Simulated assay, not measured.
Amino acid sequence: MASKKKEIDDLCEKIHQIFQAVAKENGYGFDDNPKSFCIYSKRWHSVEFHFQWSKDHYIVKFISYDSKGEWNASQAIISIWTYSDAFEFLAAFKILFDMPAKRKTK
Rank of each mutant, 00 (worst) to 15 (best):
M1A: 09
M1K: 10
A2L: 03
S3G: 03
K4L: 12
K6A: 11
E7K: 15
D10P: 02
L11G: 04
C12D: 08
E13V: 09
E13R: 12
I15N: 03
I18A: 00
F19I: 06
F19H: 06
A23M: 02
A23W: 05
E25Q: 07
N26C: 03
N26F: 02
Y28S: 02
G29C: 11
F30S: 01
D31H: 01
N33P: 07
K35W: 06
F37V: 09
C38W: 08
I39D: 00
Y40Q: 04
S41P: 14
K42I: 09
K42P: 02
R43P: 00
W44A: 10
H45R: 06
H45L: 04
H45A: 09
S46Q: 04
V47C: 07
E48M: 06
F49D: 03
F51W: 02
Q52T: 02
K55P: 06
H57R: 13
Y58Q: 11
K61G: 00
G69R: 12
A73H: 02
S74E: 10
S74I: 14
Q75V: 12
A76E: 13
W81K: 14
W81M: 15
W81Q: 10
T82F: 15
A86L: 02
A86D: 01
A92D: 14
F93S: 04
F93G: 01
F93R: 01
K94M: 13
I95V: 15
L96E: 15
L96N: 14
P100H: 03
K104F: 11
